[in-house]
C-alpha cells in the first residue's frame, strides 16, 4: 500500500481504532447476559463488527506510525493514558437502555464519519471506512428500533431510557471535538473536522428521540452539545476511572502469554 505520510495521520487512525475497540469490548459484556438469546447474538455481531473495524484501523495506524507496532501491540500493550478513544465508549453499560442509547449516539456518528472517510486521501482509512459504513448503518437501525420501543414502551422502560439518555448526553460533545487533531491531517483530506459532523448527527439523533417520545437534553434541538471544557478528554489520553479495569480484562490473556497464537 502506498503511503502518503501526513504527520498526525497515525494518531488520527489510532483514535478512531480505539473508539471501535473499546466499544466492542464493552459490548462483549452482554454476551450470555442479554434479555433474550436473539438479542445476545445481535449484540455479539455488533461487537464483532466493531472489533473488525478496530483491527483494520489499528493495523494501518501502526504502519503509518512506523515504529513496528502491529494491531495486537497497539491493542494489548498500551496502558490507559496512551489510549485515544472518546470517554463515551469506555464507561460501564450494564443497563440495556444505556447500551442502546449509547449505540445510537456512537453508530449515528460513525455512519456519518465513515461515509466521508470512504473518500479519505489515506487509502487504508478509506478502505476500512468503505466496508464499515454498511455495518454501522445496521447498528443505527438496531439501536433505533430499541430506543423507539423502550422510549415509547412501558412507563418503566420510558423512565429508564430517559435516565440513560440524560447520563450519556454530557459525553457526546467529545465526538465533535477537534482540539486533538493536527490541522495538516484535515488539510490533506485524511479526516474532516469533527465539528462538521455535528448538525447531521445530532439532527438524526434528535429525530429518533422525538419519535421515541423522549425529552431532548438541553441544546440537542439546536444541534448543540455541551462544551467539553472541564470534562475528561479521551482524545488527549484523559480517561475515567473505569478504563484501567476494562483494559486489565481485555489485555490479561495477551500479556500472560506474549506472542501466543491460536
Amino acid at each position: 500500500m502506498t503511503t502518503t505520510l501526513v504527520p498526525g495521520s497515525a494518531r488520527a487512525l489510532l483514535a478512531l481504532g480505539d473508539d471501535a475497540l473499546l466499544a466492542s469490548q464493552r459490548l462483549g459484556w452482554w454476551i450470555s447476559r442479554a434479555p433474550v438469546l436473539e438479542e445476545d447474538v445481535a449484540l455479539a455481531n455488533i461487537g464483532l463488527d466493531l472489533l473488525g473495524q478496530a483491527r483494520g484501523l489499528l493495523a494501518r495506524a501502526g504502519e503509518l506510525e512506523g515504529r513496528g507496532r502491529d494491531e495486537d501491540a497497539l491493542a494489548f500493550w498500551r496502558d490507559a493514558p496512551d489510549f485515544r478513544h472518546v470517554c463515551l465508549v469506555e464507561r460501564d453499560q450494564r443497563d440495556f437502555g444505556t447500551t442502546m442509547v449509547r449505540l445510537l449516539l456512537l453508530a449515528t456518528w460513525q455512519r456519518e464519519l465513515y461515509a466521508r472517510l470512504a473518500a479519505s486521501s489515506e487509502p487504508g482509512l478509506a478502505a476500512v471506512a468503505g466496508k464499515a459504513v454498511k455495518e454501522v448503518a445496521y447498528h443505527v437501525d438496531h439501536a433505533r428500533a430499541w430506543v423507539l420501543r423502550l422510549g415509547d414502551g412501558t412507563e418503566e422502560s420510558h423512565l429508564r431510557v430517559q435516565r440513560a439518555l440524560d447520563a450519556e448526553w454530557p459525553w457526546v460533545s467529545e465526538l465533535f471535538d477537534g482540539s486533538w487533531l493536527d490541522p495538516e491531517v484535515v488539510a490533506a483530506g485524511v479526516l474532516p473536522w469533527p465539528d462538521e459532523l455535528r448538525p447531521t448527527v445530532l439532527g438524526e439523533v434528535a429525530a429518533v428521540l422525538a419519535r421515541a417520545t423522549l425529552r431532548l437534553p438541553d441544546g440537542l434541538a439546536d444541534g448543540l452539545a455541551p462544551e467539553p471544557g472541564g470534562r475528561l478528554r479521551g482524545r488527549h489520553g484523559e480517561h475515567t476511572d473505569e478504563l484501567p479495569g476494562l483494559l486489565a480484562r481485555m489485555q490479561q490473556v495477551a500479556r500472560a502469554h506474549p506472542g501466543a497464537t491460536w
Binding site: 433474550v36 438469546l37 436473539e38 447474538v41 445481535a42 455481531n45 437501525d141 438496531h142 428500533a145 420501543r149
Partner: peptide
C-alpha cells in the same frame, strides 16, 4: 424460528441469527 415482540424486530433477529 425466533422470539420477538413485533415483526420489525423479528426480521432483525432473524437477520442476526440465521444470515450471519
Amino acid at each position: 424460528s425466533v422470539h420477538a415482540p413485533d415483526a420489525e424486530l423479528a426480521l432483525r433477529h432473524a437477520r442476526d441469527v440465521f444470515t450471519r
